[in-house]
Design a protein around this nucleic acid. Structure first.
Lengths: 332, 332
DNA sequence: CTGTTAGCGCCTTCAT
DNA sequence: ATGAAGGCGCTAACAG
């Protein structure tokens, strides 16, 4: 079922068959149709490996993500997948479970797999050994969700967005506003959002209580419930992501608190599911699917140009405060 | 950076380098170490395309899924990804958006991409043109979530599980139990679950009201809210998947109904998020990640044996009723 | 416009 | 245990 068989059956050379597929204009309409017909009859499908070997282009993109269990990244991957297919690229996703050594393994794996380019969400661009390795190979790549002056990135201004969210809570009369985050060291996003929180509090002239850091997902609800039962508790929580926001709401209920009556909760990410919950999640919505799409577009464009992407190509997409039902005016 | 360079620098033949990597036992420990050292120095990485071209094995699996926006499939893909990496395979996922023609395109795409095997979640195995095409090529494949006597499948007994759930609702005193489903024609899973519902109702000697079919996700909540405001409304809803269950709960709230006080809701899928919601989702939990993992294992095993998978290899995994807070005894 | 041909990098007999 | 050489299927010069 090779190009040879098609050429033989059609009575032309392999070069003609190749041209008929890759440069239809460079062959007579008659021969092109002949070749196409024979190819169809033989169920001929070009061999991708042979083509890749010859052209040195695999038309495959590697994708490195923390996890697919967070809908944020699933939505992003969906966006990547669509854009990739549209651009004639296949994608090879690898998840790292937020582990640094897995990031390196993933990059190694994908590089060995001959991908033409990489989209990655890393823990922290500044300290990523995986990125160093990648850079030294010259393979085009783009970071999604990460933000760093030395790398091409597609993301949003999480810091400003959180500061804005805090300002809104203040306008609603909240004073004791706490922030809930996963392990701060595990992601630059978390750090940026935390900075935004601190800025927001400072701008409002409020003291920022200590960050509520929730290391393990399993114990998150219990830990939060405990905190909410303290004599002096926050009236509003700014959560570093929607999953934490959902768990915070659950913790509130377990503590006998009504959301938003007794406690306001703001998330971050804008997962689609949030809109179907009760209360509907108030959150800072990122364009997750678009982050994926734009990352692909940037990468494909760069690869077409032959050059690796520059940090200057970075994109800062808008995100917006999505009003839901988990936020209300502070009780007096 | 080819095997040639390594051979030259190490002063051995390319054959020896190849052996050092693929059959370490077939070379002297000394030469093996020499080759490994030189390879490391040169940052040599075997070229996957060349190897694939030569061996006719890509060590890549194609995955065809409806969507990643439903956490069910995201969880499954995560399971697939883990098992694939463990088995030395890369995965190439393609989503179809529940569209038949996309299924065919996906299969075509992946076949052209030289995958060694395919895992797919199709709309309906009985009517799938994509499967016919696939079968005729002899490429090993396995269906996930689908169930059909003529194909190798990895799934659960959704029919029995729903019948059991209905029985539990009946025990709680419910009589007016309705079923909520997406487009029935769009998936064999939905059909199986509906049959389970009908069976459960019949077993309890109850009349099954007409299926509540929700064609469009966007209008689901509105449609459901409308139904719940009828003079005679169900006291319990069995939903064909967790996303519908979540929307049903929202519709209930919008209608002023308390869940589970006024309305019990049972989902199907067991998405992880369900446990963090309030009320925690009562659902029929499938082992989504395991469905993915076992699919890969079956496929890899079959490919090692050289034969395509037989329908007899199908796996019916256990699923279980996961008690949450969205279900309670019927009000008298 | 079409054909001939030389590799792309690797594995794998077949010799040695 | 190691080396030499053919060829997997394809594309891209280069001829004609």
């Amino acid at each position: 079922m090779s190009i040879q068989s098609v050429a033989a059956k059609a009575g032309v050379s392999v070069a003609t068959v190749s041209r008929a597929f890759n440069f239809p204009d460079k062959v007579t309409p008659a021969t092109r149709e002949l070749v196409e017909r024979v190819a169809r009859e033989l169920h001929y499908v070009p061999n991708a490996s042979a083509r890749t070997l010859r052209t040195q282009r695999s038309r495959a993109l590697g994708v490195v993500l923390p996890t697919l269990l967070n809908p944020t990244f699933a939505e992003c991957l969906q966006g990547i997948a669509h854009a990739a297919v549209a651009g004639g690229y296949a994608i090879i996703p690898v998840t790292t479970g937020y582990q640094l050594d897995e990031e390196e393994r993933a990059v190694h794996l994908l590089l060995a797999g001959n991908v033409d380019g990489l989209i990655l969400v890393v823990s922290n661009p500044s300290t990523s050994a995986a990125l160093d390795r990648l850079r030294s190979t010259g393979t085009p790549y783009v970071l999604a969700y990460n933000r760093h002056p030395d790398h091409p990135c597609v993301t949003v201004d999480g810091e400003a967005a959180v500061a804005d969210a805090v300002a809104r809570l203040v306008l609603l009369g909240h004073r004791r506003i706490a922030m809930v985050s996963g392990t701060l060291a595990a992601s630059d996003r978390a750090q940026q959002r935390y900075r935004g929180y601190q800025k927001g509090m400072a701008d409002a002239g409020l003291d920022a209580p200590a960050l509520i850091e929730v290391p393990f997902v399993e114990s998150a609800v219990d830990l939060l419930a405990q905190l909410l039962q303290a004599k002096v508790r926050p009236t509003a929580l700014v959560c570093s992501n929607d999953l934490l926001a959902i768990r915070s709401i659950r913790a509130a209920h377990l503590s006998g608190l009504d959301v938003p009556g007794d406690l306001s909760v703001v998330g971050f990410d804008g997962i689609a599911l949030g809109e179907d919950l009760t209360p509907a999640l108030t959150t800072i919505a990122q364009p997750n699917s678009e982050i994926g799409r734009r990352s692909v577009e940037l990468l494909v464009q760069a690869m077409a140009g032959g050059a690796a992407l520059q940090a200057e190509a970075s994109l800062l997409l808008p995100c917006f405060f999505r009003d839901g039902e988990s936020c209300a005016a502070a009780a007096i």
